[in-house]
């Protein structure tokens, strides 16, 4: 039996970039087992979590995603042995970059999900969707900003070269 359908004021758009060997199969298992999970997630299948270029995530935010979800095999289980270790390092720095840029890093979720963890997939996705729903719409780059403090900062920047 499916969950009761709830109506929300705001439905976040969530992009998921997942590894085809584990997370994608895990999500597939969730589907074939008829488990329910949040329909807000749009999934893109990639060969490895090491293939997830930060460019994809930047593009997703540029195009109006409210949250980005990245997932791959648990450490030690990578189909290519080490792809997920690189992904881990890359995301450590990428999150700091987004934070410095003023994007709430709660909007970027990273998770290890294996092909057998269909239940974990549904739980993580549902929880993330709820979290992003609470955070609200991601500010669009072309929204007008009138922030006197920001303008003050821009005009009074200390000289640097």
């Amino acid at each position: 039996m499916g969950k009761k359908i709830e109506i929300h004021d705001f439905e976040p758009k969530i992009m998921a970039f997942v590894c085809k060997w584990c997370t994608y199969s895990g999500a597939d298992l969730a589907g074939t087992s008829r488990m329910d999970y949040s329909p807000n997630v749009r999934m893109i299948r990639l060969p490895c979590s090491g293939r997830i270029d930060p460019q994809f995530m930047i593009k997703a935010f540029e195009q109006g995603a409210d949250g980005v979800f990245i997932s791959g095999c648990h450490p030690g289980d990578c189909h290519y042995n080490e792809g997920n270790y690189y992904a881990r390092r890359r995301n450590t720095t990428f999150r700091q970059l987004m934070d410095f840029h003023g994007i709430d890093i709660e909007r970027i979720e990273f998770s290890w999900i294996s092909a057998a963890e269909a239940i974990k997939w549904t739980e993580v996705i549902d929880a993330f969707t709820e979290k992003v729903r609470e955070l609200g719409r991601h500010p669009q780059y072309d929204d007008e900003v009138v922030d006197p403090y920001a303008q003050f900062l821009v005009q009074n920047k200390q000289e640097s070269a």
Partner: peptide
């Protein structure tokens, strides 16, 4: 965070 974001946008 939002001030920082506003700064970059400006």
């Amino acid at each position: 965070l939002d001030k920082r974001f506003a700064f970059w946008r400006t």
